[in-house]
Amino acid sequence: MIRNLEKYAPYFFIGPAVIMLLLIVIFPLAFSLGVSFCEWNLIRGGSWKFVGLRNYSYFLFHDPYFRTSLKVTLTFVLVAVGLELILGLGVALLLNRPLKRIGLYRTILVIPSTMTPVVVGIIWRLLYNPELGTLNYFLDLLGLPPLNWLGDPNLALPSVIMADIWEWTPFMALILLAGLQALPKDPFEAATIDGASTFQLFRYITLPLLQPTIIVATLLRVMDAFKTFDLVFVLTKGGPGMSTETLSYYTYRYGFKFFHIGYASALSYLLLVIIIIIVQIFVRYLRTGEE
């Protein structure tokens, strides 16, 4: 009896997770793929109308707002993640030496990345506030004119990016620090004996050895940056104009402000495809590490 049941053991262990994920992720996504081929407005009543690829061709070829949003998102991802990588590497190098109480430092350092993103938004809204914000107070102390951080269309996106950099640079630094501390000591000793300078050590030994860590950290950040929603919602609601309207926020507005569920589903599939491509690169990277 027991022997017979043992035959099914793998299903017993893995079954619940697979069934649950099919039910709560794959089925809903298949449903929204279907909806993305329809015109369906929740406000105007419940009728679906099959329109084929019209939703897709509309945002690809006719929707100027979509193009703006895509540009905002790409700028955001590129600038934010790029600066986070550079700053994070700097902080990691700075902390990569024998420190007492490194655990405490790590915990403090990573506070911005593990606290609630909405709270990060609130904090920066407070700092950026043109009437009572601390940042303008500091500018004033330095004798500089005050800035309308979130209200100026040219400054809003850089301001959101700056908040994102504050939030996620610690995440980068923490991962890169772990990577630095796992590096072998021998190549550094050999190169030092051969008279390599600190810069040469960094350029020709640290960077190449750290590359896998840098790639994993960057891919994870790029995936998250593409989905940015919380910061935009709290800081700017996409404005002024569309200057900070990320793809996630644009899709959210179509789905839950205008209730164009069909169009929003098509938009969400674009984001999904972008993420799936990055995930594939990430997974390939992990697999070569595991096998």
Binding site: P10, I14, A17, V18, L21, I24, V25, P28, L29, F31, S32, V35, M223, F226, K227, F229, S248, T251, Y252, G255, F256, I261, A264, S265, S268, Y269, L271, L272, I275, I276, I278, V279, F282, V283, L286, R287, E290
Partner: peptide, 29 residues
């Protein structure tokens, strides 16, 4: 078992689903 690695990585990939993509159908359901 066959494709146990593929299954593992499929499960990992689901972790990355953009919330807004899952939120639309889940809201309707």
């Amino acid at each position: 078992f066959k494709r146990s690695k593929d299954l593992s990585f499929w499960i990992l990939s689901i972790r990355m689903t953009p919330p807004v993509a899952a939120a639309i159908p889940i809201f309707i359901i």
